[in-house]
Computed example of a mutant assay.
Amino acid sequence: MSAGEAVGAAPARRSLRPVLFGAAVCVILALLFGVPWWSLVAAGAGWPGWVFPAGTVLFVAGLVAFPVLMYLGHGRRALDWAARAGDTLLGVVWVLFTWALLGDVLRGALALGGVADPVRSRIVAAATLAVSVVLVLWGYVEAMRVPRVRRVEVTLPRLGAGLDGLRVVLLTDTHYGPIDRARWSARVVEAVNRLDADIACHTGDIADGTVSRRREQAAPLGDVRARLARTYVTGNHEYFGEAQGWLDHMRVLGWEPLHNRHIVVERDGSKLVIAGVDDRTAGSSGSPGHRADHAVALAGADPDLPVLLLAHQPQQIGQAVEHGVDLQLSGHTHGGQIWPFHLLVRLDQPSVQGLRRYGERTQLYTSRGTGFWGPPLRVFAPSEITLLTLRSAGGR
């Protein structure tokens, strides 16, 4: 192939990408709405004559409205009412899709048991709908509640005796957004302050929207109490809006933005480096001066001191291992948020939730998140406020 042919082929491939992406989105939407439509409406249940046209109109209306609502809600216009409607529709149809698929397992079992249509399909449709309604209602309550406190002990062999028992409270993925959760935010802060923290951390995705739009919801973070430090790093969602604006605003609220930098805290003669890096998407966001840089974040730090690193995505653990970090705190995954989405998250991230070890020194704790993104639902993936108690090698 000549140089001219190669140059001509590259734009052709690039021009196909929007087409392929659009086709993939259409297929996904057709499956999301089509599978539950078939299971609830079109399968051989023998419903009364009006059910099929009414059900079909309902699902088609949802299919058409969904991309419009998401464009209006999450596009340039950023209309909160559209985002609320589109996000809720996404959550409901995901639950219906999941349990319609599982309903086909029941369908097969009933067929093996000799149950014929229309009884078989009516049982499957009723079970799918009943389970979905219960999970949507329960998931909404779980999403909107103040998160439970998850208590974790982490032993760091290099931690000095003076810091044994250090209490680190982790918040992440608060996602202040189109649903006004200012009161929820205040109650979360009250729960945090009851934990008597030495260090408070927020590992990003603080909000969906600019500071001016989400200021009231974020305001209670200024009341978080911690004896030694309050630290914050950006998540990927900050780079959909104004990352530098949130870094500046968190400083106004009294937090220490760790924008590829570190601080050192000390207690009873023992010291701990607390470092933070930008989200891994920062470099491609177009935000000047933003990219994840572990070397810069740790420049000048005493290599003999233990390092606590804040990095939004678990996927950033590789660089943490390379730079000798003792413990990385992350969020981003939401624990999957709506079961079984965690299976897809696991394809992208090394950890979905909990504490794991990487290499000889480094450990990673991944929070399921304090808030939620998009659908106001949490199904089998509860939110959390994390209290990590750090122990030295000689601690109890």
Rank of each mutant, 00 (worst) to 15 (best):
Asp293Pro: 02
Gly204Ala: 12
Gly336Val: 03
Pro303Asp: 08
Ala292Ile: 01
Ala207Glu: 08
Ala292Pro: 00
Leu228Lys: 02
Asp248Ser: 14
Gly286Ala: 13
Gln316Thr: 11
Phe341Pro: 07
Val325Lys: 00
His342Gly: 13
Arg251Tyr: 02
Leu344Arg: 11
Arg267Tyr: 04
Asn260Arg: 04
Gly331Val: 09
Glu266Pro: 05
Asp278Glu: 15
Tyr232Met: 09
Val325Ala: 04
Ala219Phe: 14
Asp205Leu: 04
Asp326Gly: 02
Gly235Ile: 09
Gln319Trp: 12
Arg225Gln: 15
Gln328Leu: 12
Asn236Val: 11
Gly245Thr: 13
Asp304Val: 11
Asn236Pro: 10
Gly269Gln: 07
Tyr239Asn: 01
Leu310His: 04
Leu344Val: 15
Ala299Tyr: 05
Gly286Met: 09
Tyr232Ala: 00
Tyr232Asp: 03
Ile263His: 01
Asp198Gln: 07
Val224Cys: 03
Leu305His: 07
Leu310Pro: 07
Leu298Phe: 07
Thr234Cys: 11
His312Trp: 07
Val233Cys: 11
Asp302Pro: 09
Leu228Glu: 05
Gly204Ser: 06
Thr231Gln: 02
Leu329Ala: 09
Pro314Ser: 09
Ala218Pro: 07
Pro306Phe: 01
Asp293Gln: 06
Thr281Tyr: 11
Trp339Cys: 05
Thr231Asp: 07
Ile317Cys: 01
Arg225Ile: 08
Pro288Val: 10
Gln328Lys: 08
Thr203Lys: 00
Trp339Met: 12
Pro257Ile: 06
Gly222Tyr: 00
Ala295Leu: 14
His294Gln: 08
Glu322Tyr: 09
Glu238Cys: 10
Ala243Cys: 10
Ala282Asn: 02
Asp326Val: 05
Val211Asn: 05
Gly241Met: 06
Thr203Asn: 05
Gly289Tyr: 10
Leu329Asp: 00
Gly335Gln: 06
Ile338Asn: 03
Leu309Trp: 01
Asn260Ser: 14
Gly336Ser: 04
Asp278Val: 08
Arg267Gln: 15
Gly241Glu: 12
Gly222Ser: 12
His262Thr: 11
Asp223Thr: 09
Leu221Cys: 03
Ile274Ala: 07
Asp278Cys: 07
Asn236Leu: 01
Gly245Asp: 11
Ser287Trp: 10
Gly204Ile: 10
Thr281Met: 13
Ala299Ser: 15
Asp268Thr: 03
Gly283Met: 06
Ala297Leu: 05
Gly276Pro: 14
Ala218Phe: 06
Cys201Leu: 13
Gly318Asn: 12
Leu258Lys: 05
Leu329Gln: 01
Asp198Tyr: 01
Gln319Lys: 14
Val345Asn: 11
Ala295Met: 09
His323Phe: 13
Gln217Lys: 04
Gly335Ala: 07
Asp198Lys: 06
Ile206Trp: 07
Met250Asn: 04
Gly289Asn: 06
Val296Trp: 10
Val296His: 13
Arg251Ser: 13
Arg225Glu: 15
Ile199Gln: 06
Trp246Lys: 00
Leu272Lys: 05
Val224Lys: 04
Ala226Ser: 08
Gly204His: 05
Asp208Glu: 15
Leu247Arg: 11
Leu343Arg: 10
Trp246Leu: 10
Leu327Cys: 06
Ala218Ile: 13
Glu216Thr: 14
Ala311Lys: 05
Pro220Arg: 10
Gly324Asn: 05
Leu258Glu: 01
His202Arg: 03
Gln316Val: 03
His202Val: 11
Arg280Leu: 13
Glu322Met: 11
Pro257Tyr: 02
Val321Leu: 11
